[in-house]
């Protein structure tokens, strides 16, 4: 389970994440809720050493992935040696602590 919901336009089929009130392509207003499915391919990434206040870590890998069913999303990549195009498996996990509580999001683990 990835924990995120993407939206597929009923009229033109465009897959969007996050949510929009109107389709980015055809302005349609009806969508099918879909889950990202299949392997995630790493489209781009960065390794961040200067994080915002409250995130005391370095070397945090953030990346944009595309799932086999067309959903594109940003997530926390848990790979020591990220490579463009690498295949990742998505999970729903803690990505940040907000007000002492964990906030959840998309975590991406290299596929063995």
């Amino acid at each position: 389970m990835t924990g995120i919901t993407a939206y597929k336009c009923n009229k033109c089929g465009l897959v969007m994440y996050p949510k929009h009130f109107r389709c980015l392509k055809c302005k349609g207003r009806e969508f099918e809720e879909i889950e990202p499915a299949g392997d995630a391919k790493l489209l781009t990434y960065t390794v961040v050493d200067q994080l915002p206040w409250g995130m005391d870590e370095r070397g945090r890998v953030l990346g944009i992935v595309e799932f086999a069913n067309g959903v594109k999303a940003t997530g926390l990549v848990k790979a020591d040696d990220p490579k463009l195009g690498m295949k990742l498996k998505a999970e729903w996990g803690p990505v940040r602590v907000v007000g002492g509580e964990p906030a959840y999001g998309l975590t991406l683990i290299p596929k063995k």
Binding site: P18, Y45, T46, V48, Q50, L51, L76, G105
Partner: peptide, 26 residues
């Protein structure tokens, strides 16, 4: 960084330099 999308970006620690880094790599 509060300019970024709250749920789709900010929550992960995405900053403007992080967006620029992802753009720069490509």
């Amino acid at each position: 960084a509060t300019m970024t999308h709250p749920m789709a970006e900010y929550v992960y620690g995405v900053t403007l330099p992080a967006q620029a880094g992802m753009f720069a790599r490509l």
